[in-house]
Design a protein around this nucleic acid. Sequence first.
DNA 1: AAATTATGGTTTCATTTGCAACCAGTTGCA
DNA 2: TGCAACTGGTTGCAAATGAAACCATAATTT
Lengths: 150, 150
Amino acid sequence: MTDHAPLELEHFLPYRLSILSNRVSQAIARAYQDRFDLPMTEWRVIAVLARYDGHGLSAREVAGHTEMDKVAVSRALTRLVAAKRVARRTHDGDKRRSVLRLTAAGWKIHDAVAPLARAHERKMLAALSAEERRALKGILDKLAPVSEKD
Amino acid sequence: MTDHAPLELEHFLPYRLSILSNRVSQAIARAYQDRFDLPMTEWRVIAVLARYDGHGLSAREVAGHTEMDKVAVSRALTRLVAAKRVARRTHDGDKRRSVLRLTAAGWKIHDAVAPLARAHERKMLAALSAEERRALKGILDKLAPVSEKD
DNA sequence: AAATTATGGTTTCATTTGCAACCAGTTGCA
DNA sequence: TGCAACTGGTTGCAAATGAAACCATAATTT
C-alpha cells in the first residue's frame, strides 16, 4: 500500500476558515432575515450607505465597499428601493449613475440591526483573550492581501 | 442629525472573515475545478474517504466529517460514482447504508490534489509569523465552538 | 460630429444550494 | 407479528449566485 499522505481536512486552514465563516454568516443572516426580512447582501448595502451618509453613493461605489459584484448590488437595491428603505435618484451630471441614500425607514433598520451586529461580534470576541483579539486583527490584515484577486 | 453610530463594515469581524474565506475558497475551488473538473464539495468527500481509508464510510459519516449536509454529499457522490472516482456498495447488514471507497482513479485525483491544497495553505501561512501561525490555530479552536449549531 | 470604446447598471440564463417531502429499510415495542 | 417511530439516502422545487449579454449614457478618437 502506497503512502497517500491523506489530507486532514479538520486541520486544513482554508477548510476551517470556510466552516467557521459559513457558520457565523449563516447565524447572523438568519437573525437579520427572521427579524427584518433583510438578507445579508441588503444589510451590507445599508451598512455602507449609512457609513458614507451624505455622499450619495452610486451602485458601483457600494459594490466596491461591500466587495459584492455589481449584479448582487443591483438586485439588493431593487428590493431595498421597492421596500422604500433606500431612495434612488439619478446623478445630475451623469444619467448612468444612481445616487443612493437611506430613507428614514432605511435608517431605522440600520439603527436596529447595527447593535445586533455588534453584539454578535462581541460574543465571538469574548471567546478570545486580549492578545488573541489583537493577534487576530493583525492576522486578518496580513491574510487579506494574500487572497486578493489579481 | 441623530447619531446613527454606523457600523464600519471593513473592521467588522464576521464580515472580514466572510470576505477572506470566500476569496480563499473561490481561488482553491477554481484551481480544482479547472484542472480536475472537481468541485470543492467533491474534493472534500474524496479527502475524507482518503483519510478514513479502509473504513468503508457511509454517506452519513462523510457528511459528518465534511460538515456538509446529506443532500450535498448525496449529490457529490452521484457525480463521483458516475466518474468512477468512488465505488459505492451496499452495507451487508443494513441495506440503507452505502459503503464508500475511493477507486484507483479516486486515489489518483487525491494524490494530485492534496499537494496542491497543501501548497495553497503554505502560501497563506507564509504571510504570517511563527507566533501568528500558532495564535491562529488557537483562535480557530476557540471560535469554532462559539459558532456551533445549537 | 461620427464612429469607437468604455462605463453604470439591469436582465437573462444556467448552475448551485437549501429545504421539505419522500422512499426504502430498520428498530422498538405493544 | 404488526404497527409506529426512526434513519440513510434521494428527489424535486424554490431561492441564491455567477457569468455573459445587453441597454443606455458618457468619454475618446478621428
